[in-house]
């Protein structure tokens, strides 16, 4: 085993995804030699793009089976590469593709498996991750002499701007398609939604703290007071069927950065905050003074939202005349 850190680049519809740069930044923070691996077919243009943008040495794995994502193909081909030259750490983005293959790949390789990390402590070579919806953190380490597959939460490191470094070298390895049991049939793009969270200047977002679905109307009314206001939601609220999924902010939902984000009754698990933490002004309305949302909120109204929001609506109306 050497000291290398490999990152698995993610791409989609012929474009390298920005999370790849997050991963490179995270790996560089860890120290050691950072190399990027990308799978695809044809993979060369993608590999060159990663080398150009990040300055990393890139290995492109070209296989007809990797033309679209398939967990078995990814596991099989990455394993082949690791058997040639075993890295210390294999970093994978904690995304619907990464969390899909990473734990099984760790089993295939006999590596340890650590998921959804947000930080690395170089002093002890430990990883930090959230548990219990962000109420506690835990610190883990891959035992000495044991390589690890680690999934890294998007946004856990600040990437350098693209093309900061001289482009890295590119090596292409060609493999036949491995036999697979799982077949990827087709990709279904998101249905064009009526909710435009990306362009909203103000997002009033609702979470489980609403307690009863009727209070959605309060949220809607507050959002409607702003010219480009929209209603956002946490995942659990959508799962309860109180709002359609197209309102969801955070992992597997929208990533937004409005001028004002009003988080109403949202406890603020990382899955949510990663999608809104770059908003210019974040205000939380929450009865729990220890809710994790306060880690990212600039201001907090520590009051029951069913009492506060009607008063806020009244005052905004009064102010507007």
């Amino acid at each position: 085993m050497n000291k290398d850190i490999w990152i698995i680049a993610e791409h989609f519809e012929n474009r390298v995804r920005p999370v790849t740069s997050d991963l490179v930044a995270f790996a560089r923070k860890m120290g050691g030699e950072v190399k990027a691996v990308i799978l695809g077919h044809p993979v060369k243009p993608l590999a060159e793009d990663v080398a150009q943008k990040t300055g990393c040495e890139v290995t492109g794995i070209d296989s007809p089976g990797a033309a679209v994502y398939n967990s078995e193909v990814y596991r099989n081909l990455i394993k082949k590469l690791c058997e040639r030259n075993q890295p210390r750490y294999l970093l994978v983005p904690h995304t619907p593709l990464g969390w899909d293959f990473a734990p099984a790949l760790a089993v295939d390789l006999g590596y340890s498996s650590i998921s959804a990390v947000t930080d690395f402590n170089p002093e002890n070579s430990t990883f930090i991750r959230q548990i219990l919806n962000g109420k506690l953190l835990e610190e883990l380490k891959s035992p000495p002499g044991c390589s690890a597959v680690v999934t890294v939460m998007p946004g856990s490191a600040n990437p350098e701007p693209d093309n900061t470094r001289p482009p890295g070298s590119v090596k292409i390895l060609e493999f036949e398609s491995p036999p697979v049991k799982t077949r990827t049939i087709r990709y279904l793009p998101a249905k064009p939604g009526t909710v435009n969270l990306k362009d909203a200047e103000v997002i009033v977002a609702a979470g489980r703290g609403l307690k009863v679905p009727e209070r959605i109307e309060l949220i809607r009314e507050l959002a409607s007071l702003f010219k480009r206001g929209a209603v956002g939601a946490s995942r659990p609220l959508c799962d309860q069927g109180w709002l359609p999924l197209e309102h969801q902010v955070g992992m597997t939902g929208a990533t937004v950065s409005p001028k004002l984000y009003l988080a109403c009754g949202i406890s603020g698990a990382l899955q949510h905050t990663m999608g809104m933490k770059n908003s210019s002004l974040i205000v939380a309305v929450n009865t729990d003074r220890k809710a994790p949302i306060l880690q990212v909120a600039h201001f907090c109204v520590n009051t029951d939202l069913s009492k506060f929001i009607p008063v806020l609506i009244k005052n905004i109306r009064k102010f507007r005349g």
């Binding site: 006999g110 590596y111 340890s112 498996s113 650590i114 002890n124 430990t126 959230q130 548990i131 962000g134 109420k135 506690l136 953190l137 835990e138 610190e139 883990l140 380490k141 891959s142 035992p143 002499g145 044991c146 690890a148 939380a284 003074r289 994790p292 306060l294 880690q295 909120a297 600039h298 201001f299 907090c300 109204v301 520590n302 009051t303 009492k307 506060f308 008063v311």
Partner: peptide
């Protein structure tokens, strides 16, 4: 030797800059 080793759990540091808006409604 194949499993990640759990060293400790701890509370997140108190929120850095968040300010509470106080007073009556």
């Amino acid at each position: 030797g194949r499993c990640a080793e759990l060293l400790r759990a701890f509370f997140p540091p108190p929120s850095p800059a968040g300010t509470f808006i106080t007073g009556a409604l």
